[in-house]
Design a protein around this nucleic acid. Sequence first.
DNA 1: CCCATAGTTCGAATATTATCGAATTTTAGT
DNA 2: ACTAAAATTCGATAATATTCGAACTATGGG
Lengths: 105, 105
Amino acid sequence: MYDSLMRPFKHPPVSDFILERLLYALSDPVRLEIVRRLAESGEASCGELDGGRPKSTMSHHFRILRDVGLVHTQTIGTTHMNSLRKADVDSRFPGLLDAIVSQKP
Amino acid sequence: MYDSLMRPFKHPPVSDFILERLLYALSDPVRLEIVRRLAESGEASCGELDGGRPKSTMSHHFRILRDVGLVHTQTIGTTHMNSLRKADVDSRFPGLLDAIVSQKP
DNA sequence: CCCATAGTTCGAATATTATCGAATTTTAGT
DNA sequence: ACTAAAATTCGATAATATTCGAACTATGGG
């Protein structure tokens, strides 16, 4: 009764991570930007990362990032705090995240 | 009059490579498998890499891989020989290809 | 209790993609 | 020339995604 209240989001276990799905999630410019921002800032709410885009659009992208295992979301008050599951991704796919996020535009 | 006959394919210059588009190209299981096979075998014809799939389907996937700059195709006789543009990809996105291709399933 | 805030969910329109058969092209061999 | 081989292009279909407004949910503050 703690989890269901504090974490209404499904976060897949590391063993369920699928490389192709991570790559797909990162192939969208909006989502890649989200991941980049999270990589440098540590964590951020949904609202901090929309670039003027509608909330429903952002919610959609965050869900995809969560579903593939890239992002962890926790509810804090009325805001949803997002962070990169870097250690998890690194353990399953060593070096992948850095190799992608560190690339220059 | 050499290029147009021997290379009917458009291969984008390195400066046109776009990270998101590479990731997208690699997010398809069929295409990722193609790239993996090319990475280890060096080069292969289209026919060698279909897994019983129709040629038109494979042709579609090869075109996407070419369009984003991952694969180079040259005509040799009646066959099209494909190879990874590893050096080109590495020069634009250092470490990216290895970090993806080397991941275990 | 009411209200504002933050974000999700729903629904629908639009767009993109994957797949594959059929027809076409190109090249090589006879 | 004719034919076979290899692969592309075309066309259609089915599946999936993106986007966004509108309605909804949950939380915290006054």
